[in-house]
């Protein structure tokens, strides 16, 4: 399999502290790669290294099958990026901000209007960025990252600090870019819910280490289901089930059945009904991805 971006044992040390530790990140063409981790896990550091803003202490990075260390310029010509808070020149208009980038990137002037249309800022083209809302600045940042028609887009926390409607806007925009323009996207976030509906692949980083990297479907499989039952006499119900070979857990006045096949659940309920226990509720409890994410990062800490 050919990867658009591949790091091998990427490590970055600040003094004694290891911010990124032996990271093996793999991104396939056309993917939306959700790069997740709590604040301070090393996401931004990793992204800065990927863009050549920081030099890794050790390890290698290949982007478009080329070595970042030696081919930085030719690689960056095909990469668009937005790192952390948007950078802009407040005293310049939206157009002038993009014009400054255009001059460096040597793309045609028409591209400015194109990217402004894509991010929906065409009606504020000639307004100074000073007066923009955070959402608009963020969109200008994305417009800037699209100037050179990138094949790989690296977005570091693009929805940070935005209100819910702003987050949805950015999410739709990213979806459109991936589906319509076929851009491979690396998007980092500390909130799983943000990339949940976007990402095709997820990488989870905690304390500088990549603790999970696979498709989002594999991650969803971690979302074990369980059936919770509420009855009038929990003690009796549990004993009845146990004597029939069904192990249960007890939590907050509810009996929890671990993941069982439909037939086994039917069986358990039949036993309860026949034994005369009143069943108030039978519910399916699904762990959200958010909980899995939290659990994963917590497990890592317990080790």
């Amino acid at each position: 399999m050919e990867y658009i971006l591949e790091t091998k044992e990427l490590t970055k040390r600040f003094g004694k502290e290891e911010a990124v530790s032996k990271l093996d990140m793999k991104i396939k063409k056309g993917e939306i790669y959700g790069f997740l981790g709590p604040n301070g896990a090393g996401k931004t550091t990793t992204i800065r290294i990927l863009l050549g803003l920081m030099k890794p202490t050790s390890g290698s990075i290949r982007i478009f099958q080329e070595n970042l260390d030696t081919e930085r310029i030719s690689i960056l010509k095909r990469v668009g990026s937005l790192v952390e808070n948007p950078s802009y020149y407040p005293h310049l208009t939206a157009y002038e901000n993009l014009e400054a980038s255009r001059k460096i990137l040597e793309v045609p002037k028409a591209r400015i209007q194109e990217v402004l249309n894509i991010v929906g800022l065409s009606d504020v083209t000639n307004k100074k960025v000073k007066g923009f809302s955070l959402g608009m600045k963020q969109r200008l940042g994305i417009a800037n990252s699209l100037m050179n028609n990138p094949e790989l887009l690296i977005l570091d926390e693009p929805t940070n600090g935005l209100d819910p409607s702003g987050i949805i806007e950015i999410r739709n925009l990213i979806n459109r870019l991936a589906n319509e323009a076929g851009i491979t996207i690396l998007i980092s976030s500390h909130l799983l819910s943000e990339v949940d509906q976007l990402a095709t692949t997820v990488g989870i980083i905690n304390k500088g280490k990549l603790i999970f990297q696979d498709s989002i479907d594999v991650m969803r499989r971690y979302a074990q289901q369980s059936i919770s039952i509420k009855v009038n006499d929990s003690e009796k119900a549990r004993n009845m089930l146990f004597s029939n070979g069904i192990k249960t857990n007890y939590e907050n006045g509810r009996i929890l059945l671990p993941e069982l096949a439909d037939m086994e659940i039917a069986e358990a309920i039949r036993i309860l009904v026949e034994s005369g226990v009143s069943i108030y509720r039978v519910e399916e409890e699904k762990r959200s991805l958010e909980e899995i994410f939290l659990q994963m990062t917590r497990e890592e800490e317990d080790d």
Binding site: S87, S101, I104
Partner: peptide, 18 residues
């Protein structure tokens, strides 16, 4: 200060320039 104001250095240097 033009570059420092919103830390535009990171954006500038992530462009294909040395």
């Amino acid at each position: 200060s033009v570059e420092n104001e919103t830390n535009a250095w990171k954006q500038l240097i992530a462009f294909p320039v040395t």
